[in-house]
C-alpha cells in the first residue's frame, strides 16, 4: 500500500493528512508546532510510523509514502519529497473540502499569516498575504486572549456574548495597550473580546476587498471550524462565507494531494523508461 502524506507546519500547529492510493483521506491529525519546527517534523515521523506509515527506509521497513511539506516550517521537514508553499496547498485542499466550483475564494487565517486566495478552474489565479504585521491573524487573537486570561475558544465564547467596543490600533502591541486601558476602565471581558474579534474580521475583510472575490468564499485554517467568525466575515463581505470543521486541514490535504500527483508522475516516468 502506498500512502500520500501532507505535512503543514504552521507557526502554531502542525497539521498532517494522509491519502491512500485512491485519493481518499484516511487519516488526519494535529499537533502543536512547539518551539522548533524541526523537532515537530521528527515527532510527526514517529507518529506516522506508529500508524504503519514510513517516511524513510529503515532496517525493518520500506518507505511507503511520498511526503509533501508546506507551511512556514516546510523546509524543516527533511524527509519531504517536495516542498510546496501553503498558498498552493490551501487552494488545492479547499477544492477537496468544499464542493468543487469553477471559482472559489479561500480565506486562510493562520497563526502568523492571513491569505486570501482566488482559485479558478482548480488553479491559483491570484493571492494576497498580510504584510509583516500580526494584525488580522490568529496571533492577534492569541495575544489578546492571553491578556484576558482565557484560551482562544473561550475568547470566542466571550465575544459572542458581548457588544464590540472599537479596537482601533492595527499594531498588536498598541492594540494590547488599548485592551489594557479598557480593562482598567472596567469594561466587560465580553465586550473587549467582541471588539478584538471584530477588529480581526474587519482587517481580514479589508484584505479580501483588495482582490476580486469569487461567488463562493470559504474559510480555511485554524479558525475554519468557527461559525461565529465565518458569520462576522459574511456580514462584512455581504456574501456568505462557508466554514468547515475540517478546514484547518486544507493545507495538509492540499500537500497530500500534491504528493499523490507527484507519485503518479513518477510512475508515469518509470513506465516510460521501461
Amino acid at each position: 500500500m502506498m500512502y500520500y502524506t501532507g505535512i503543514d507546519i504552521g507557526s502554531t500547529a502542525a497539521k498532517i493528512a494522509v491519502l491512500d492510493e485512491t485519493g481518499a483521506a484516511i487519516d488526519r491529525f494535529v499537533i502543536p508546532t512547539g518551539w522548533s519546527s524541526r523537532m515537530a517534523a521528527k515527532h510527526i515521523a514517529e507518529l506516522l510510523e506508529n500508524k504503519g506509515i514510513y517516511v524513510q527506509d529503515t532496517e525493518e521497513h520500506e518507505k511507503n509514502t511520498l511526503v509533501v511539506s508546506t507551511g512556514y516550517g516546510r523546509e524543516a521537514v527533511e524527509f519531504a519529497d517536495k516542498q510546496v508553499t501553503e498558498i498552493t496547498c490551501h487552494a488545492k485542499g479547499a477544492q477537496l473540502l468544499f464542493q468543487k466550483e469553477k471559482a472559489v475564494s479561500v480565506i486562510d487565517v493562520g497563526g502568523q499569516d492571513t491569505k486570501v486566495i482566488l482559485v479558478e478552474n482548480g488553479l491559483v489565479s491570484d493571492f494576497l498575504m498580510n504584510d509583516k504585521c500580526a494584525a488580522g491573524t490568529g496571533k492577534f487573537i492569541e495575544v489578546m486572549a492571553n491578556r484576558l486570561n482565557v484560551d482562544i475558544e473561550e475568547m470566542f465564547e466571550l465575544a459572542k456574548a458581548g457588544e464590540p467596543i472599537p479596537i482601533s490600533a492595527l499594531c498588536t502591541v498598541f492594540a494590547e495597550s488599548e485592551v489594557i486601558s479598557y480593562i482598567a476602565e472596567g469594561r466587560s471581558r465580553e465586550d473587549i473580546a467582541s471588539g478584538v474579534i471584530a477588529s480581526v474580521a474587519n482587517k481580514v475583510a479589508t484584505m479580501c476587498k483588495r482582490q476580486r472575490l469569487a461567488e463562493k468564499i470559504v474559510l480555511t485554517g485554524g479558525l475554519s471550524s468557527n461559525s461565529y467568525f465565518a458569520a462576522l466575515l459574511s456580514d462584512r463581505l455581504g456574501q456568505p462565507v462557508e466554514n468547515s470543521s475540517e478546514g484547518r486541514y486544507a493545507g495538509a490535504l492540499g500537500a497530500a494531494m500534491t504528493a499523490k500527483k507527484l507519485g503518479e508522475r513518477r510512475s508515469r516516468q518509470r513506465a516510460q523508461v521501461q
Partner: peptide
C-alpha cells in the same frame, strides 16, 4: 501579477520567498 512592498532589511526574507514561491507555482 504579484505586488510586494518591502524595504532593505532581511526581516521579511521568508515571507517574500513564500509569496514568490507561490506565485511561481501558480
Amino acid at each position: 501579477y504579484l505586488g510586494l512592498e518591502t524595504d532593505y532589511s532581511q526581516a521579511d526574507k521568508g515571507q517574500i520567498a513564500t509569496r514568490l514561491g507561490a506565485f511561481l507555482e501558480m
